[in-house]
């Protein structure tokens, strides 16, 4: 949260919102702190670059003309590229699925990915990523946790504080339109609290060359806890390559390899509703979000 206040202070300094005294103190601090000066300069330049509308409009035109006269940029560029690739894969898969279904008409259970069977304790209705531009999220349950996520070893919920089970508007907002998989595909993700342990299992397909580490972050249902960065559990995912699952080749020629993960960490949480994120360890921007309920004993 210290960083958050620092960022806000710099922005207030740059937009002239500080009082004369605060401004003077901030200038003195900058004089003796080279790192702060560089940080302020970077914030100023970001505002100058992206807040300059005529310039941004010109850049858009130059981007279009540049493609026209010099050729398009390379097919795989950052996350934007990955999202496009994922969309193409999903459209192709959806198309082939329709053809296949029309030929064989299997029962819905038969259409599930084979990964589900290899993951112990997978829920009856695992959440699979959906194509972008739909109303639901990739790998994000649209509703609060289904009953099968509950700790079945626990007693009735009625003895707990109802406020601890109230849905959190921040996370519900995330579930309703802002979380994207960033090119990753999560499947058969299952989280529960059992015998005092938070257990998380699932599978992710990610580029073999992707070097960033994934982690799980767990927050309470209290919005202030998330705003203040009070994470209840932050644990790296130990990814194990699943050799039995064939890698998927993207149109750009990159492999999406399947990895299994399991987390089992002892926790002392009180009964309530908890939200877990799967995210790049250093970035904490949710790539997948789910809920887990811990009932009262």
């Amino acid at each position: 949260m210290e960083e958050n206040r620092r960022q806000r202070f710099i922005e207030q300094y740059l937009s002239g919102e500080l009082s004369a005294g605060e401004r003077e103190r901030f200038r003195q601090e900058m004089e003796s702190d080279e790192e702060l000066r560089a940080e302020v300069a970077l914030h100023r330049m970001l505002q100058e670059e992206f807040g300059d509308r005529p310039r941004q409009e010109l850049i858009q035109k130059l981007d279009t003309l540049g493609e026209q006269y010099f050729g398009p940029p390379p097919p795989s560029v950052g996350r934007k590229g990955w999202r496009l690739i994922l969309a193409v894969i999903l459209v192709v898969l959806a198309g082939s699925g329709v053809i296949w279904l029309s030929l064989s008409s299997p029962a819905p259970e038969e259409a599930r990915p084979d990964t589900e069977e290899r993951i112990p304790h997978a829920p009856e209705a695992p959440v699979f990523p959906e194509p972008p531009n739909t109303s639901r999220q990739e790998g994000v349950p649209a509703q609060p946790a289904p009953p099968e996520h509950e700790d079945r070893t626990s007693g009735p919920v009625a003895q707990a504080n109802p406020a601890d089970f109230a849905p959190n508007p921040y996370f519900e907002g995330l579930m309703n339109g802002t979380v994207r998989g960033e090119g990753l595909r999560f499947s058969a993700v299952n989280a529960r609290v059992e015998n005092g342990q938070f257990i998380l299992q699932g599978q992710v397909r990610k580029p073999a060359a992707e070097e960033r580490s994934l982690a799980v972050f767990v927050y309470s249902n209290k919005e202030q806890d998330y705003i203040d960065g009070n994470v209840l559990l932050r644990f790296p995912l130990n990814l194990q390559p699943d050799m039995e699952v064939e890698p998927v080749l993207t149109p750009a020629g990159e492999e999406l390899q399947a990895f299994d993960f399991t987390v089992a960490e002892r926790v002392t949480w009180r009964p309530g509703l908890y939200y877990y994120f799967l995210a790049w360890e250093q970035e904490e921007e949710p790539l997948y979000i789910g809920t887990v309920r811990l009932s009262a004993d």
Binding site: E3, Y170, G173, T178, E223
Partner: peptide
Amino acid sequence: KMGYSSINYATKRKFVCKEKLIELI
């Protein structure tokens, strides 16, 4: 415009996104 549930959440997301951009730079 972003479809967020509250101003507090928009503030938090802005902080996270800007920090991430600065880190990438």
